[in-house]
Design a protein around this nucleic acid. Structure first.
Lengths: 116, 116
DNA sequence: CCGTATCCGCTGGGATACTG
DNA sequence: CAGTATCCCAGCGGATACGG
C-alpha cells in the first residue's frame, strides 16, 4: 500500500522513465512483432522490419533485454540461432500502448453523436 | 466503424505518432501541471518547473498548442498575461499516461501473493 | 547466422543575451 | 511579463566494413 500522491513533477518523471525504455527509433516496432507470445529470430526481425540495420537491431534488442522487456535465448549450434520473446512485464505493456493508440485516434473525433 | 486490423508496423507507427507529440524534454511536466482543469500562466510554469529556460518553455508550449493539446490565451494588457490550459483531447491523455505509469511500477511486482 | 567497430551528419536542447 | 535570437555541443541513428 504505497503512497499514491503524485505531484506533477513525480508523475512526469515516472512517465518519462517509462518512455525512456521505449525510446529508440525501432523499439516499438520490435515490440509489436513480439506481442501476443510471438517468438522471433534475429534474422526474422531483420526481414520483418524494413530499413533497420544489423547494428540498430542488435542495439535496440540489447537495450530492451537490459531493461527487462524481452528475453534473449541463444542456441549453441551451427549456424547460430538466437530467439527473442517478451517477458511478462513486456507483454503487460500492450494495454498501455493500446490506450495511447486509442487516444491518438480520438484527435478528430467529435464528443458525441458522430452522425445526424 | 473503421478497420481495427493493426499490423505490427501500423500499430508501431501509430504509437510513435502519439509519442512524437509528447517528445521533448519538458512536455510531460508541463502537461501534468495543466491536468485536471488547471490553468497556468507562462511565469507560473517557469516557477513550477525547475531548470527550464524561457526558450524551452516557449518552444514546448508552442508545439503542444500546434498539436492541439493545449490552448493559449493572450490578454492584451500591461503587463502582458498569457494563460495555458488543456483541450479536451489533451485532458483525455491522462488515463493513457496513467496506464503507462501503472505499468512501469509493476516492474518488480510479483505475479501474486506479495506477502506470506 | 548473428552480431561488433568505426565514422559521421543531424537535431534536440542548454547557456546566454536581447525585445515588445 | 512573455517571449525571440544566436551559438554550441552531446548523442542518436544511418552507412559501411569486419568478425566468431
Amino acid at each position: 500500500m504505497t503512497e499514491r500522491t503524485y505531484t506533477p513533477a513525480t508523475a512526469a518523471s515516472g512517465v518519462q522513465a517509462a518512455l525512456r525504455l521505449l525510446d529508440g527509433r525501432w523499439k516499438l516496432e520490435i515490440l509489436f512483432h513480439l506481442f501476443d507470445g510471438k517468438v522471433q529470430r534475429f534474422s526474422t526481425l531483420e526481414r520483418l522490419i524494413p530499413g533497420i540495420s544489423q547494428k540498430m537491431l542488435a542495439q535496440q534488442l540489447r537495450q530492451l533485454e537490459a531493461d527487462g522487456l524481452i528475453v534473449r535465448t541463444v542456441y549453441n549450434q551451427v549456424p547460430p540461432k538466437v530467439e527473442y520473446h517478451l517477458t511478462g512485464w513486456g507483454q503487460a505493456l500492450c494495454p498501455a500502448l493500446d490506450a495511447l493508440l486509442t487516444w491518438a485516434e480520438r484527435k478528430d473525433a467529435p464528443p458525441s453523436a458522430p452522425d445526424a
